[in-house]
Design a protein around this nucleic acid. Structure first.
Lengths: 102, 102
DNA sequence: TGACTTTATGTCAAATATGATATATTTTTA
DNA sequence: TAAAAATATATCATATTTGACATAAAGTCA
């Protein structure tokens, strides 16, 4: 799993997205990263739609403001678990999530 | 997050699913657990559809046979990350996943 | 402008998930 | 049925994710 490569590059200021072939990520790894980035954007949209501050959302899910910020920034240190728990708190139903996965 | 409660009960042989009010899980926590359990079933179905053994799937995603087994058993120690990485390896496109999440 | 609110970034110890390994159990097949 | 293959379960050291905290940066508005 050479997502680490990407992490390191990102920390050094690399812009991810179009460097697929440069970084040697497998298609699955690319999709994994893209999924997280996409979800992070959705979380931000949903939070803003609900007029919540990052702090308020953090309180709702017993996380921290900094973690919400990192999540919305697409920080690689944020797991899918946290992203999806956010979506659940923001009102996405578990059924809707599954329906699209099958 | 009192998923730990549930973990302990599960280890002791509790059947989960209808004990929602007994365990004091919030709706979001229930959905989170149910999502994981549902995804674990989907992983198993997809793997079997592709006629892969747990070992083969483990090799494909550089995991271990035991982890696949736990994943398919809905073991609470398996993260959403691993579940979704499995689905990606099994051919679910990232786009399909997102489409259902929004 | 300057106070105030919100968001971003960095660090860290504790909690949790990980792959590896061993081994038991179940299922398949000859 | 017995051997072989597949799956399940337990443990563990390591790696990753976590919330908390501090603080910087950016945005808002009097």
């Amino acid at each position: 799993m050479n997502i680490k490569k990407r992490k390191k590059l990102e920390k050094k200021g690399w812009k991810v997205g179009s460097v697929e072939e440069f970084l040697q990520l497998s298609p699955e790894e690319m999709q994994y990263v893209e999924l997280k980035i996409s979800l992070s954007k959705i979380v931000q949209e949903k939070r803003q739609q609900k007029k919540l501050t990052q702090q308020q959302l953090a309180n709702l899910m017993k996380s921290s403001q900094s973690r919400i910020a990192k999540m919305e920034a697409g920080d690689p240190s944020v797991s899918l678990d946290l992203l999806i728990r956010s979506l659940l708190v923001l009102g996405n139903s578990q059924k809707n999530i599954i329906r699209r996965l099958v």
